[in-house]
Structure formats: structure tokens, C-alpha cells
Amino acid sequence: MTDASEQPPDGGGRRRGRRSRARADFDRARADFDQANERIKQRTGRDLIGAILIGLVIGAAVLLSLLIWKPVFILFVLAAAGTGIFEIGRALQAGGRRIDLIPQLIGMLAMVASAWFLPLWQHWVVVCGAVVLIVLWRVVAGVVERTRGGGAPWQDVLAGVLVQLYVPFTASLAIILLRQESGELWVLAFIILAIVADTAAYATGLTLGKHPMAPRVSPKKTWEGFGGAVVGAVVAGILLSAFMLGLPWASGIIFGLVILFTATIGDLGESMIKRDLGIKDMSSWLPGHGGVLDRLDSILPSAGAALALYYLLTPLVTR
């Protein structure tokens, strides 16, 4: 008779052993990923997992709003622009500037509405009216307050105009592009292009970056990352032009390089503002990204460029 201790383990024991090994493998893989994520976070200051999840949610919302019924995208623009105004306004207020949020929001609503409903020349009238409202509101508020704490009043006026032109005005240009024939595809294309350029710059800079591009403005941006962004933008521009917009593939090179230029200028411009204010992010509302405006810094300035390219390149549409 065979001793019980010499009998092979039963099926349940083998299953428990496999589960234990699988759990141990999963725990090791998770630990390795957490370590890699922590190294990336230490180098870039971003939570990779949070950034990916938030990015996917925002991307899905934008995609659905553009492809299902494009007027829904206007609500997305209003929410993003309103949050952006609040973020940069609060940051400037912390830096000593007086930003009046009520006229800023009124101007935003007027610009977005006119961009969708009014002819282009009338939209420009509304833009000028919004700027005048910002200036007059601040001047009258300064007279009523009868006091100034640091700096000259004209600095507050300029700061208020900057907010209005930087956020709602550029957002309204995206609405003007949206209302054009196949405008939803153009809006989607330039947003994708700006994201691809930013992602390519991030990935290339993280792996190969050694030479700072603008150390006084944004120390973590490198020329190697910019080179990766050029390649990514040109490839994405060609693919988007040929397969989404119906343009000759060669026009995609122009599309990619122009949007890359405006996206880079927007990114560096916001970095300069944040560096001047002594802050890292406009807010912490989006885990892994910072604030809403930190994700729109390359997209907002690209809206005007995309609108200009629409008028320039649509005569070349092949379908």
C-alpha cells in the first residue's frame, strides 16, 4: 500500500498552486509597472496612469461630440473655455493681477455664440466689443475700488485682454471652423495632429532627450523631443489629409508643420506664463495633466491656423 505522503497532489492542490503562481506573477508585473511609472513621474512630474485614463475620457467625449452631432461640441468648448478662464484668472490673481471673471464669461458666451450664428465680419465686431467690455469693466472697477495694491492699473487691463484673447477668442475660431462644410473633420484632424505632436515629443524626449530646447522657459523640453514631434506631425498630417480630409498627401506636410509650429508656440507660451507666475500647473483638476488649460495650451493657438489652412487647402480637395 502506498504511503499517503507519497501520493501525487489532487486537482485542487494543483489549481491552488497555479493561482498562487499567477498571483505572484501579477504582483511582480504590477510592482515593475509602478516602479517604471514612478521613474517617469519623477522625471516629468506626471502620473502616467492618470494621464492616460483622463486623456482617453476626454478624447472619447470630443470624438462623440464631433461625429454624432457637431453642435454638441459647442457645449464642450463652453465648458473647456469657461474652466480655462477660471484657471488662468485665478493664477493671475494669485500673481497680483485683478481679473474680472464676470465680463470674461460674458465675452466668452458672446464670442462662441457669434462664431456659430453670425457671419465672420460680425463675429469680429463681437470680439472687439468683448475686449472693450473687459477694458471698461476694469477701469470702472478701479475707480470704484479707489485703491491699488501693487503694479499699475494698465497691467490689470492688459492681463484681462490677454485672458479674453488667449482662451475664448481662440476657442471661437474652432467654432467657426466647425460650422464649415466637413468642419467637424477639420476640427478633429487638427486636434489629433496637436495631440500626436505632443505625444511624440513626450515619448522621444523621455527616451532620447539630452539637449534642452528652451531651458529658461520649459527645462524639460528638448531638441530631441522636438525632432520626434516633427516626424510625428508630418506623418499624422499626411495620413489625416489623405484619408480623412480628402486632400493630396503632400498638403499634409504643410498641415502637419503649421499645426506643429502653433502647438509648440502655444505650449512654450503657456510655460512662460506659468514660469513668470511661479507655478507648475494652472490647476490640479485633471490627474496626470494638471489643469484644463495645460491640455489646451497647444490646441487653442492651433485653431486659428487650422481655420486658415481650411480656406487655403479646401480648393485642393479631391473628393
Rank of each mutant, 00 (worst) to 15 (best):
V62L: 10
V62Y: 03
V62C: 09
L63K: 05
L64H: 04
L66K: 01
L67F: 15
L67V: 04
L67M: 13
I68V: 14
I68W: 15
I68N: 06
W69E: 09
K70I: 01
P71R: 00
P71K: 00
V72Q: 12
F73C: 00
I74L: 15
I74C: 06
I74Q: 07
F76V: 14
V77N: 05
L78A: 11
A79Q: 09
A79K: 01
A79H: 03
A79V: 13
A80C: 06
A81P: 04
G82D: 07
G82M: 06
G82Y: 08
T83F: 14
T83G: 15
G84N: 02
G84Y: 01
I85N: 15
I85A: 11
I85F: 07
I85G: 15
I85D: 12
F86N: 08
F86W: 13
F86D: 01
E87Y: 02
E87H: 04
E87T: 04
I88R: 02
I88A: 01
G89K: 08
G89M: 10
G89I: 07
G89C: 06
G89N: 04
R90V: 07
R90W: 14
A91G: 10
A91Q: 08
A91Y: 04
A91D: 10
L92M: 15
L92Y: 13
L92N: 05
L92P: 09
Q93N: 13
A94W: 14
